[in-house]
Design a protein around this nucleic acid. Structure first.
Lengths: 218, 218
DNA sequence: GTCTATAAAAGGATAGAC
DNA sequence: GTCTATCCTTTTATAGAC
């Protein structure tokens, strides 16, 4: 049944069936990320998209359905930067492992400290009780992938004896925890906003230094 | 002006002016922490408190004012466990510094992973744009105090040469960042709930071990 | 102070024309 | 598919009696 309507590719989710859909998606994304689920109204989304409210309901059946579609899509988009399986593993031992970790840390922090990621995190955490599937989708698209990739890299470094990493997955978790430090917390609370590259680098250097000291080869 | 009405002590905030006020505070706390600001209705708070809605408005003028009073109070209450200035500093050098750090870490994790703290954090982060004063009050009552206290302790340990801590405040931030790891994230997302002491201890041991390795005396 | 109504407004969702 | 107009529930806030 319904075999004539195949699953939409990621690009089609936004643009398929006319340009109005794209306008709705863009508007809903902006409104939900800025105001959260409760404070976002279907009226404001329709206004911002330049369409009538009924058109919004024609494309997405309800506010909850629209929210789920937008947020799940945004999880995959924003966190896809962490999906790269890291530098090709066979070369991990020959590269400067400190620089590899610093690059990964920089990339991670630049992503998660950016305003869209902070907004997405706020919304997902706030609505995790009402939309548990979104919380799970967020975790799977972001932290889970990042941990898995870094874990693989650390395992390789352990084999090459440049680091001592008896439990690569735990160490990967610890590494990202170190990066999600005080600066991240202050961004989430709105006390700091859009940190400069200098601030990010300071966090990266401190975390990598501590991580290397804790995993020095025997 | 108004000098005849002194500032209320913390206890009086809840119980002064009749027991109904206390019932309202308790009900509002429960409802706001469970549902967040937007999804909480004044009707549900009045119902849960067993009073009429008008009584709620008589004590607190508006929903926003009630929210601010409740959340700020809860920040001070929940995070006061971190306010103890740590074991008396003169003895810091003579105690087992590893055990001191483990105890602090245990105490910290037991506090922040508990359901009320997780709920409070969710609400404050979610509403940080609408109530920036609450975000600041949260940071000052919790993370700022904890960092300051641990920083003082680390400074003492550095002087006593049991650890090498050139920048005590940065190291304190790093220590707490390590503790707010994957388990904490999963609790915020509702993917894990009320972790067991065993799970907490595993995080504590890993974080303290890494921290000690990174700050081994020269 | 406290309660029972009652505004007054906002917001989610639908009907029906084109 | 899209729009205008409307329904109806929820919700903040207030009026007025006791």
């Amino acid at each position: 049944m319904a075999s004539e309507e195949p699953q939409l590719a990621e690009q089609d989710f936004k643009s398929a069936r006319g340009p109005k859909r794209r306008a709705i998606v863009d508007a809903a994304t902006a409104v939900f990320l800025e105001h959260g689920y409760g404070a976002a109204s279907m009226d404001s989304i329709a206004d911002k998209a330049g369409v009538s409210k009924q058109t919004v309901y024609s494309h997405f059946g309800s506010k909850a359905a629209l929210f789920e579609a937008i947020i799940e899509d945004k999880c995959n988009e924003l966190l896809s930067g962490q999906s790269a399986p890291a530098p090709s593993l066979p070369f991990a031992g020959t590269l400067d492992h400190e620089q590899v970790l610093k690059d990964m840390a920089e990339n991670f922090l630049a992503t998660v400290l950016a305003i869209p990621s902070v907004s997405l995190y706020r919304v997902v955490v706030a609505e995790s009780a009402r939309f548990p599937e979104l919380a799970e989708a967020f975790y799977r698209a972001g932290p889970a992938v990042a941990i898995k990739n870094l874990g693989g890299l650390l395992k390789e470094m352990d084999k090459n004896r440049v680091l001592s990493v008896p439990d690569p997955v735990s160490s990967a978790r610890l590494f990202y925890a170190m990066l999600r430090g005080d600066l991240y917390l202050r961004c989430l609370l709105g006390l700091a906003s859009d940190p400069t590259p200098i601030e990010r680098t300071a966090v990266v250097n401190e975390a990598v230094a501590a991580f290397l000291a804790a995993h020095a080869p025997a």
